[in-house]
Design a protein around this nucleic acid. Structure first.
Lengths: 345, 345
DNA sequence: CTGAAAGCGCTTACAG
DNA sequence: CTGAAAGCGCTTACAG
């Protein structure tokens, strides 16, 4: 049975075993400026690998005066049915950070607690702060005042735009969902939101207007979460005259439940009614028919946020980041040609 | 306008401003053994606060030879509809770590990649590793061989029990759900799982057996995820003779969808049929009637895992941790007295 | 009870 | 092109 090494090997051990100075080891391993024989270089690398050497990060960070660590600041009370899947986002940010050789420190904070400062500055070189549409936190301002490099995820619709933010353009998301229906041949398309959400509504309106399609007042529907409300809405939509042949929803969770209600009422999907959702939640692919929906490009957001933050930290050209990423359409079987409609050419 | 401090204050700054040695500052701030006048002590603390001093964590960790950091290792591909809500768990672990004054480092890894070692050892003092029921990773063994303090979340049903683990006893969870129905007066209760899950089934069987209630073979139903399967199952259950008056499900997501199917078939919930779920997902409280369900005590799990890991790291009595926590019942309105049944006394 | 000193492990100018 | 040395900021025995 092997014995685990008593203690982590240090740079001295590597230097001794390779017969060079500690400086040489450091310079070679970190790709520093050093002209050294290929032989010695190889030797150092081989020895380091054999000893399973990694520098003590505390010592290293003390010497280089950087923490090589990014902070991810998350809301303790995320909005219900938000377009951001926080776990997915966390995962993506962690991966991205690692690719840049940064550790990731997690910090949860309550946006309504206006006083508390996340304890991360000082132990991280910069932070990614995730904020909901309705969070009116002054944290970005405070971090900015403290000269702390910060990228906001989600600040795209704040009145006061953060210097560096990235957000998803849900408006365009709803626009492409609506356009998808239009391209299938639908003309009567209603918009159903689970909560007040003017950006998403704008996407619907833009798509309809561009296609010179009518928008009726009763086609803009806000229904909430309760079963009763959904039932009433379903019945109401069924009785409309003309009845919409396509429905764009602002949430998969609601769309999935409504699909079932419509079926109870005798409407077939997509034969009588085409439906699109938003979020691409797990069950959207389980239901029958599979729900056509819009997904937020979480990986892209994370990659961009991390790359930009690392850029600021490492003092590369500090341009601004004010990015709105487009949500993407995921086509499944809940959408088809309208009743009596012809397939598109 | 205030100027942000050029640089982080160091312990020298505090010592100078307070008129004491650096050692005194360190000792006082860390609660070390030092007999010093109350006056000086207060002065040090006041100055430290005023300067907003926090020790450089790199330097501190180098000196104390601990990283004051815990690792959280998460699976890249969590099981679908797992009983663990990974984001909730991450949140809870982060909070717990902070209460113990540890940072939390996130690391994702793919349990099927048997070779890769999470890069965390060396930068953390210990790790919490989350594993699914079906993950047959040798990571626990490798971490153990490397003497790395490790607590497994979810290893309760591995053949080879980890030395330190904590898991949720889903069996008892299903047991209390079943018992809840029994106490309401139900006698004919069926078990519906979305996937093979012998532990949960055991909970059902135990509850039924203890109450001396019959278990029919056709009352143990496995239905999967697809809409078609759910529809068939719903129809089949409706036609059963005797028909169950209570149904215990192994997943909220499935239970919610089935509730609707039953209603389509003319069965009222809970008047004709009582239903319980599992997981306490967000929509369980939105639907009507609200879904009675079972929740996993995520906070408790996180607290216990962190506390134990910190104990190991700080060399406190290193007893084993082999804990199975009980899931908890959340009573809503999808359960009631059976048709024709009397309310319990 | 205090203060000067060593040492944690690493990086990086700076002489040779 | 290399090697000896200083310094990053902190903690903790160890003399006084």
């Amino acid at each position: 049975m092997e014995l685990a090494p008593k203690t982590k090997p240090s740079i001295r051990d590597v230097a001794a075993a390779a017969g060079v100075s500690r400086a040489a080891v450091s310079l070679v391993l970190n790709g520093g400026k050093i002209r050294i024989s290929q032989e010695k270089r190889d030797k150092i690398i081989a020895v380091a690998r054999e000893l399973n050497y990694t520098p003590h990060v505390g010592a290293r960070r003390l010497a280089i005066r950087r923490m090589e660590t990014l902070g991810l600041v998350l809301p303790t009370q995320p909005e219900a049915l938000s377009e951001y899947n926080l776990f997915e986002l966390t995962h993506a940010v962690a991966e991205a950070a690692r690719e840049h050789n940064y550790d990731l420190l997690l910090h949860f904070f309550d946006p309504s607690q206006t006083d508390a400062m996340p304890g991360t500055p000082g132990r991280v070189d910069g932070s990614i702060v995730v904020l909901g549409r309705k969070d009116t936190s002054d944290l970005p301002a405070r971090l900015s005042a403290a000269q702390h490099p910060t990228v906001i995820v989600g600040g795209g619709f704040f009145v006061q735009k953060p210097e560096h933010f990235i957000d998803v353009d849900v408006s365009t998301g709803l626009m492409i969902a609506t356009r998808h229906l239009i391209q299938l041949g639908h003309r009567n398309i209603a918009y159903v939101s689970h909560t007040e959400h003017s950006e998403k509504m704008n996407g619907y309106i833009v798509a309809m207007t561009k296609a010179r399609l009518p928008i009726r007042k009763e086609w803009i529907i806000e229904i909430g979460f309760t079963e009763k409300a959904l039932q009433e809405a379903a019945a109401q939509i069924k009785e409309m005259n003309p009845r919409p042949t396509g429905l764009v929803f602002t949430s998969d969770a609601i769309a999935v439940r409504m699909m079932r209600l419509f079926r109870e009422l005798g409407l077939r999907i997509p034969a009588d009614l085409s439906i699109t959702g938003f979020d691409n939640i797990e069950i959207a692919s389980f239901v029958t028919p599979g729900l056509t929906t819009v997904r937020v490009p979480t990986r892209k957001i994370a990659d961009l946020a991390v790359r930009h933050l690392v850029g600021i930290v490492e003092k590369q050209p500090p341009r601004k980041l004010q990015s709105m990423l487009t949500a993407e359409l995921v086509v499944r079987n809940s959408t088809g040609v309208p009743p009596g409609g012809l397939p598109p050419m």
